[in-house]
Design a protein around this nucleic acid. Structure first.
Length: 154
DNA sequence: GCCAACGTTGGC
DNA sequence: GCCAACGTTGGC
């Protein structure tokens, strides 16, 4: 329990939203094609880690709920599918480049926490979300997680 | 739609 | 191995 990690994962709701996850319950977080994000999934995530679900590319961008890491890391099947937009011809089954985890729906916030509100909170000043603006998976500190939960309830 | 940030590619 | 060109992300 003490080694639990917290994360934030972005998705464009047009591609995959919190409502899609609530319907599916468990879903492979596929399509990640950035090495830093892959490394977090491959090397650092543990089953049961808690994850903030962030909707990007909409106005306003916001955290809309939470989920949990629900599998060990395994190869992203879309990299081997020529019909997928995530197909990677340079990757092979023997030595896959892209690794993902499954995520499981936990809750959808009644009141999403938007980016603007987060920026106003000094407790969230150091969030990796703001520092690494284009990275789609970032670590979250326990104090940051707790603050966001408080904001979602308030 | 614009543009800044930044990761990737490829020529040398 | 450097670095310019290029492509993508994502806030605004």
């Amino acid at each position: 329990m003490s080694d639990r990690n917290y994360w934030l994962m972005k998705s464009e709701p047009d591609a995959y939203s919190i409502d899609d996850l609530e319907r599916d319950q468990v879903e492979p977080w596929d399509g990640i094609r950035n090495y830093a994000a892959r490394n977090y999934m491959r090397d650092e995530m543990k089953v049961g880690d808690k994850v903030l679900f962030y909707h990007s590319q909409i106005s306003p961008p916001e955290i809309v709920g939470t989920m949990e890491v629900a599998s060990e890391p395994y190869p992203d099947p879309t990299q081997f599918d020529p019909d997928s937009k995530y197909f990677d011809a340079k990757s092979s089954e023997e030595d896959p480049t892209w690794i993902l985890v499954d995520v499981k729906f936990v809750q959808k916030f009644d009141k999403p926490v938007d980016r603007e509100a987060m920026k106003k909170e000094s407790a969230l000043d150091d969030m990796e979300l703001f520092r690494l603006s284009r990275l789609s998976i970032t670590p979250v500190r326990e104090a940051e997680w707790n603050k966001i939960m408080e904001m979602a309830e308030g």
